[in-house]
């Protein structure tokens, strides 16, 4: 069995014209960086992997996670976590409720609450469970988003320009935290970015996407 995230001969078409092509295997703990100018279709690649590709696009090729083909699996059963440049914390839920939403169901209430409290403590946000996400700072929100995703026990991690909204000082800090977390859990990571610094920090292979439609 092939551990990790496998992108086998992936080709995404827009209006019957090829947009991007990728063929790569990401072993556990490795960070694959996909770089390229905006509009080249980096986010489209992630949409294909999460199973949320728009109707204007056609995706071909196989996605496998730990050897299991998930190309046609519904999005919510893929076990692939994703972080965007915005934290996308659900604004109507407290910090704790956001985390509980991410946790797999089951278990006693008290146990779930303890797990949430511990997870928050691990990222330096002890006692934040009842807070309104809108009252948190940008760095705090980014950490909550990371914790929410990790609590859902994903088997792979996608980063869509995840650090581009943070200021320089915060950026390195959050990046290190996320990379460290992924490495500790042995997750394959696919990072999409336009920032060379992110790519350097990832210390992994880099794919440069070029526009295939010759535009």
């Amino acid at each position: 069995m092939d551990k990790g995230l496998t992108l086998r001969k992936i080709c995404i078409l827009k209006d019957a014209k090829p947009l991007i092509e990728v063929d790569h295997h990401i072993p556990p703990g490795e960070i694959l960086t996909v770089m390229g100018p905006s509009g080249v279709g980096k986010s489209t690649l992630l949409a294909y992997i999460t199973g949320t590709l728009g109707p204007d696009f056609t995706g071909m090729g196989e996605i496998a996670l730990d050897g299991r083909d998930i190309t046609t699996t519904p999005p919510h059963l893929r076990q692939i976590g994703i972080l965007f440049q915005d934290d996308l914390l659900f604004p109507h839920m407290s910090v704790g409720a956001n985390l509980a939403f991410g946790m797999p169901p089951g278990g006693r209430r008290a146990v779930r609450q303890r797990l949430i409290a511990e997870a928050l403590r691990d990222v330096g946000l002890e006692g934040y469970a009842n807070r309104d996400p809108a009252t948190l700072s940008g760095g705090q929100r980014a950490r909550v988003a990371l914790v929410r995703m990790m609590l859902s026990q994903p088997k792979a991690l996608l980063l869509d320009e995840a650090f581009s909204r943070l200021d320089v000082a915060l950026r390195a800090q959050v990046r290190t935290l996320i990379f460290q977390t992924a490495q500790d859990r042995g997750l394959p990571v696919l990072m999409v970015t336009h920032d060379a610094e992110d790519a350097a920090a990832a210390k992994g292979p880099v794919i440069e996407l070029r526009s295939l439609s010759g535009g």
Partner: peptide, 27 residues
Amino acid sequence: WDRRYATVAHALGATPWRVFCQVRLPT
């Protein structure tokens, strides 16, 4: 509405109906 909320919620394992009832309707 920002569709990425739905993508994130799906990635967290939420079914389409759960996203509809617990994320989309309240927001």
